[in-house]
Simulated assay, not measured.
Amino acid sequence: MIRTLISTAVLSLAITTTVSAATELRFAEPSPNRGARADAVIHFMEDVTKLSNGDLTFDMHWGGALLDYKSVANGVAVGTADLGTMLAAYDPQKLRSLTIGDLPTKYSDPWVGMRAMYELMTTNEDMERLLAELNFVYLTGYSSTGVQFECAGDNKIRTVADVEGKRIRAVGNYAKILDDLGANLVNLNQGDAYQAYDTGLIDCGASYFYTMRAFKTFEVADNYTIANWGQLLGFATLMNLDVWNDLSQEQQAVLQKAGSSAINYFAKLQIEEMALVVDGLRTGDIGKKANVYEMAEEDRTLLAEAGEKYIQEWIDRANKDGVDGQKIWDEYTAMLAKYQNELDTLGYPWER
């Protein structure tokens, strides 16, 4: 009887220990649970749980139910959530290190951009330290895909000169550059663009092929220009550093592996979606036929030149933060070139 009681107690203790060893992470996701990026977030969580054999799970809060984009940075930093998805454009002062990804470059491919940003934020000691000072660690990143021009009615932007006088919706440094080029900027969320086109509040928008079906702007826009003008990469899931440090090395490795895998997964979804949208606009299969132009290389060069002063501004701010801004910028652009070369020579990882 004594042996039986002891065995039962040991078994109960083992079960209790197994249950208590599982770690549930509170995840704040400001976006709703729909679309390609939501699929990528779900893929990340499922990957983490699978790779950890159920040792890591998530308490997920979608659509800003716990923290929205304006509050998520502070909320994760103080522990309201263990991790959360953040857009540097909503808190550029706090997330200054992430804003390097929002600077316009000639690289618009989402896989190239996300891979370069992931490598920079997880291997560059200065960038890791800047995040650590905010109590963050970088897990995975996202891309808006390349910036394109979308216009309603007879409006069109085929050249840089066409920007002047247009009422344009844009965000971040892209809005600043278009303002410099003579646009009349209109401050609107992406979700309000449809009605703004329909009512004539805006003529054009700096948009993304990957989001057009989700917001159905093709129903009210008529002219598109493929500019492939940089992308927004200051878009990431960050984790509370104190929570990270409490995890085992094995758990940390799982999160890192899943974060890297999620980038390939999301890039594939985006690239497939962009191809469907461009083809659908040209043929009308998307629901409405539209004019699709391609911006000339000389105009793309002018856009790049117009953004150079904002690159220098980022470098100067980084220097004030105690790091070598030029060195970090050079390292980042070298990573972009490296992944672009890999893409050009080997293709996408899922195609090899």
Rank of each mutant, 00 (worst) to 15 (best):
G146V: 08
G205A: 14
Q231S: 15
A196R: 12
Y107V: 05
K257Q: 14
I42E: 02
Y265L: 03
I157V: 15
T159P: 06
R352W: 00
L51H: 01
A28I: 06
D242I: 10
N223L: 04
F266L: 13
T217F: 00
A116G: 09
S12F: 15
S52I: 07
G84H: 10
A334M: 08
L98Q: 12
D162T: 03
K268W: 00
Y265K: 10
I2Q: 14
A38C: 02
V72G: 04
G325N: 03
S248A: 05
P32Y: 07
N240R: 13
Y138Q: 02
W314L: 10
M45T: 09
Q312N: 11
W329Q: 15
M127V: 11
P349E: 07
V137L: 06
V243I: 15
T237F: 12
T17I: 10
V48Q: 02
E294D: 13
F266K: 02
D68C: 06
V137Y: 05
F27L: 12
N341Q: 14
R167W: 00
Y69K: 15
I286Y: 12
T49S: 11
A65G: 01
E298I: 14
I202H: 06
N184C: 00
A40L: 03
V78W: 01
N173M: 06
G63L: 02
G230S: 05
Q251E: 15
A275E: 14
I328S: 03
N53T: 03
A236T: 06
Q326S: 11
A36Q: 11
L343Q: 09
D324M: 04
D126G: 09
S71Q: 15
N187F: 05
Q195E: 13
Y142W: 12
T237Q: 09
Q312V: 07
L120E: 08
I177L: 08
A175D: 05
K288I: 03
P30L: 03
D222Y: 05
A40R: 08
N135A: 07
T217L: 01
A258E: 02
I315K: 13
A253M: 09
L281I: 09
T16K: 03
D91C: 07
S97N: 05
E125D: 14
D279T: 12
D321R: 10
L343F: 13
E313V: 08
D222F: 02
G284M: 08
N187S: 12
G284C: 05
S52A: 07
L336R: 15
P92M: 07
F27V: 11
T199Q: 11
M239V: 03
E119A: 13
D55M: 07
A36G: 09
T4S: 14
T123E: 14
I286S: 09
A40F: 01
L269F: 00
M1C: 02
L139D: 02
K327Q: 13
Q256W: 04
M127F: 14
K327W: 01
N264I: 05
V278N: 04
I311M: 09
A221E: 06
A267E: 01
Q340M: 07
K156V: 14
D222L: 02
A22P: 00
A334V: 06
A132R: 15
D299M: 10
T333K: 09
D344C: 11
S97R: 08
L232P: 02
G101H: 04
V278C: 03
A214K: 10
A193K: 03
G35F: 02
I157Y: 09
L139H: 06
L56V: 01
M1F: 12
L25V: 07
K288A: 12
Q190V: 06
A9Y: 04
P110H: 12
D39Y: 00
L188E: 05
L233C: 09
L181Y: 02
